[in-house]
Design a protein around this nucleic acid. Structure first.
Lengths: 190, 190
DNA sequence: TGTTAGAAACCTACTAGTTGGTAGGTAGGG
DNA sequence: CCCTACCTACCAACTAGTAGGTTTCTAACA
């Protein structure tokens, strides 16, 4: 029982990595089998259908993201620091040639099963509501220049982060992400 | 010589539509053949390789977008009106269950040919520079709350637009796009 | 004007490779 | 002994792409 990591987790790890790089539709069970070092058919033992894999992956990454974002939003840091930390998280995945799994799946939304679609909807709403906590704090502390609705502001930030991430990936000059983020966040404060 | 639309254009139209809905990798020559009403093999007459199709499509939509955005940026409207018009453009494609072709292609960037990659890079830079014109005008007129770099601000806006578009598509409640956009744009002005 | 050469735009019929998925067998540990 | 976790060996469906035949429009020409 001294296994490094159990196969199911390895599969999810590799699938997640592949999806963040090329998307769900470009990731095949064959790619996965090579990455994990297991025969293609054996993956079906753990995840009978590809949809099962995607569902499990989405559930896992949704939970992980939720936890990560909550720990940022509910820390004792300042609003500015919290937003900067969030930007840092997106920047590090970007610098690894990846993009947020949820945004990758959102793009390929129409090709997914009904279950995955619903989970995606929930995941987006969940993340938005966590980001909203940060804006609620900032609003309470009177830090912002405009009296915006916190929900709209949170969704706007979320969209901004995944959007600039997606647009930056094709560019050679990747420092633009952090610069744009600074520009965006600066404009929020009074 | 009273053809409605020539086949090559029809192919590009349908391919564009499909890509905006499901992405490049989920769009097949078979899907296209059904949509256009031509046999699958005949598509190869117009576009020998799928990559040829994507290249032609990207070139066309890049030009079209460039022209459209320029006409917005160089009109005699106010900065606020220009930004709102831009938001309106993205909103209308969103309400048709679509997303900007360039952002769809950017997500599937890693699976594309070197030529397409370069064109994408160019297209993103081009759009950014057009948006920058609007910010330059606003800066000159002293409309903004913060003294940001116009290039960073333009890229931020671009990322915001495609990002919120992607995030809104999976949601049933699609009015959030316009609300988030208003929230963002409001925060830019003094 | 009628004939014909040719090319443009399609077609049928095929290929090789890849996809997700299945059937059924096997090694090894509790 | 049986269950977990793999394996080999398949399959049908689909992928992009090719070969080669047919129609049809056009342009040249006697």
């Amino acid at each position: 029982m001294l296994e490094t990591t159990d196969t199911k987790t390895q599969l999810l790890d590799c699938a997640d990595d592949l999806i963040q790089r090329v998307g769900v539709n470009a990731m095949s069970y064959n790619d996965l089998s090579v990455a994990v070092g297991i025969r293609k058919a054996s993956i079906h033992y753990h995840f009978p259908k590809k949809d099962d894999l995607v569902q499990a992956l989405l559930a896992r990454c949704s939970d992980a993201a939720s936890q990560k974002y909550k720990s940022v939003a509910r820390s004792d840091a300042s609003v500015r620091e919290k937003l900067d930390t969030l930007v840092g998280l997106y920047n590090s995945t970007l610098q690894n040639d990846k993009a947020c799994s949820i945004s990758m799946l959102s793009v390929e939304y129409q090709t997914q099963s009904e279950t995955v679609k619903q989970s995606l909807d929930a995941a987006i709403k969940n993340t938005t509501s966590i980001y909203e906590e940060i804006f609620a704090q900032g609003k309470k502390e009177g830090l912002f220049a405009k009296a915006f609705d916190t929900h709209n502001a949170a969704f706007a930030l979320y969209g901004f982060l995944i959007g600039t991430q997606i647009l930056t990936r094709p560019l050679a000059e990747r420092t633009i992400f952090l610069k744009a983020a600074k520009s965006y966040i600066d404009s929020l404060f009074r």
